[in-house]
Design a protein around this nucleic acid. Structure first.
Lengths: 250, 250
DNA sequence: CGTTTGACAATTGTCATACAACTTAGTATC
DNA sequence: GATACTAAGTTGTATGACAATTGTCAAACG
């Protein structure tokens, strides 16, 4: 005789720790907790919620890790005043977990770079543009003496300068995270001085494009900048839509 | 007498918990840990690292919260097989914490939407386009009987259908997270049936734009779709660069 | 009166232990 | 061979203890 076991809904109640994080999350949504405010002490929270201090600590540690609260030993635990840098770090873990993300990651980078460069083009002040150009010069000047890692950092700084020009912290966070994921590749690529020169030329192209505020010029500058890299093969699909769109509007 | 206090390096060593998370993170980077792999048990990890089990638990709880590992009671802790839905949730906390992020959030949404719609336009199969159109029809059909929350969910589904057409899990995850942040606003906005109709019209505009594969058409369809919303004021800056770019190329 | 010093309480960080709940594998039983 | 049971291993939670740090307050000092 065969039994067809009933498929119960997963009525497994969320763990105590999850309940605590949700409690604090809901208090934030309702406005009962405001940035900077001090939370009850861990033993007090444990008493109020009727759970052990370990559970409270694990919940607070999670909130702390993603930047929602800040704990100061001897003082207490407070709701974070400003969004922390850690808030988007999980994305880097996502990359590490994926197996064949390389081409998908390139697509993401192109998409994000185009987005923040266009935003920067519309928002950058004259001073911002000077910073960007300064960053480009710095890389060019360092070509003679710096090692490949330092060069890669300067390359990164160039993109950071553009990101700063967006004046949008959310965009900056996402952009920085995505760019950082390429640091190692860039660094490896810069063993060959010729590649550094190509990157420098690409940077000046991007600067010109930013000045022009022309969407297509920005777009091609970025696509081209990735064409002399170890990932040029993956840029194809993106380039395709670029040409396609260009053709339709002219 | 005045002292110029020495500027000490912040030599506060990271907490034991942070060291543990970093250890696991580095093991992931080096490839010593692969998705699906089982971690040593908590007591074993504590022994190997020379720390208490509580510290190990707090570290694992953090990694679990952001979706890097999955713990199964009675079985063990494993590196996550696939990126979890939680991976970008911290962004939603950022919204709760920040006060004046609204206009920045709109910018981010426009940037991301334009990006994934262009990608979708270049990658979508005929079947994908049918799914997108089906999602648009579903919202239109539900207009007569569904409540505002259900309508908002259908609106969301439309964007999910476009995201699916990118065939890029990374882009999908970021896109879904950004869209979800607007669920409540959309839901509130849909109290007024007229707003739903405007959203439906905007959706069909986007579908046309996707078919055309024309960058400017996609861009204006998205900008326009946000123009009949509670956030129309914030769309101005983005619209500006749109027109600007358009003017330069013609 | 203002400043410094010291003691003390409160709080977080970490460890250790214990037990409950659950999973898995192996064993015994039919 | 299939089933039921047992036992070991693992995570989830609670509790107690102590170290490290911070904040406060009062006493001592100028």
């Amino acid at each position: 005789m065969e039994y067809k076991p009933v498929q119960f809904q997963s009525l497994q109640q969320p763990s105590v720790v999850d309940q605590i994080t949700n409690t604090i999350r809901n208090a934030l949504i309702k406005g009962e907790l405001k940035p900077g405010q001090k939370l009850p002490s861990e033993p007090e929270l444990a008493r109020q919620l009727g759970v052990g201090r370990s559970a409270v600590r694990e919940a607070l540690k999670v909130l702390q890790a993603i930047g929602v609260v800040k704990s100061r030993r001897g003082s207490g635990t407070y709701i974070a005043e400003e969004p922390s840098d850690r808030l988007l770090n999980p994305l880097s873990f996502a990359i590490l977990l994926g197996t064949n993300v390389s081409s998908e990651l390139i697509e993401l980078r192109v998409m994000i770079e185009i987005g923040y460069c266009e935003l920067a083009a519309s928002q950058a002040t004259a001073e911002d543009m000077l910073h960007i150009e300064h960053a480009a010069h710095a890389l060019e000047a360092a070509l003679k003496y710096a090692n490949h890692e330092e060069l890669a950092q300067l390359d990164l700084n160039f993109h950071y300068a553009i990101l700063d020009s967006t004046h949008n912290p959310l965009v900056q966070k996402i952009g920085r995270t995505v760019e950082e994921l390429f640091f190692k590749s860039i660094s490896d690529n810069f063993h060959e001085p010729e590649h550094v020169k190509q990157a420098i030329a690409a940077h000046y192209n991007i600067i010109d494009a930013l000045h022009s505020k022309d969407l297509y010029q920005i777009r091609s500058a970025i696509v081209d900048s990735l064409n002399n890299t170890p990932w040029k093969d993956q840029v194809k699909t993106l380039r395709q839509i670029h040409l396609n769109g260009n053709g339709n509007t002219h």
